[in-house]
Computed example of a mutant assay.
Amino acid sequence: MIPVFDALNSIEAHSIKIYLISNGIDARVGGDYLQGAMGELPALGIVRVFVDEKDEIRAKKLIREMRDTADDDDSWIPPALR
């Protein structure tokens, strides 16, 4: 398996993994348990999403599409927190 996405955190990685699986691509998350070892420092580049080599191009395309069509509507956030 090869990495196709470097996540900011475990939640983002698992969201991408679920999206890929729902589109027929076997995906795994690696490094999410290492975040605790970093303490309060950001663990950038540690949590990754992996897929089989044969799915690399399609997975990257799906991830790009998902990020491009993400809902930027933050109206659900209370004004004091925006």
Rank of each mutant, 00 (worst) to 15 (best):
M1G: 06
M1T: 06
I2M: 07
P3R: 09
V4N: 02
V4K: 05
D6R: 10
A7N: 03
L8A: 11
N9K: 05
N9V: 06
I11W: 02
I11E: 09
I11H: 08
E12Q: 14
E12S: 05
H14Q: 10
S15I: 15
I16E: 02
I16W: 03
I16F: 02
I16D: 00
K17F: 01
K17D: 00
I18S: 11
I18V: 14
I21D: 10
S22N: 15
N23C: 06
G24R: 12
G24L: 03
G24T: 07
D26P: 01
R28D: 00
R28T: 05
R28G: 00
R28V: 10
V29M: 05
G30C: 09
G30D: 11
G30N: 06
G31D: 07
G31A: 09
G31R: 06
L34P: 00
Q35D: 00
Q35Y: 01
G36V: 13
G39F: 00
G39V: 04
L41I: 05
P42G: 03
A43M: 00
A43E: 00
L44I: 08
G45I: 04
R48E: 08
R48K: 15
F50A: 01
F50L: 15
F50C: 04
V51Q: 06
V51T: 10
E53V: 14
K54G: 01
I57Y: 04
I57G: 04
I57V: 15
A59I: 09
K61E: 11
K61D: 08
K61F: 10
I63D: 04
I63H: 09
R64V: 06
E65P: 01
M66P: 00
M66Y: 15
R67E: 12
R67A: 05
D68M: 12
T69H: 10
T69N: 13
D71I: 14
D71N: 15
D72Y: 14
D74M: 13
D74W: 09
S75A: 13
W76D: 04
I77Y: 00
P79A: 03
P79T: 02
A80D: 09
R82G: 00
R82L: 12
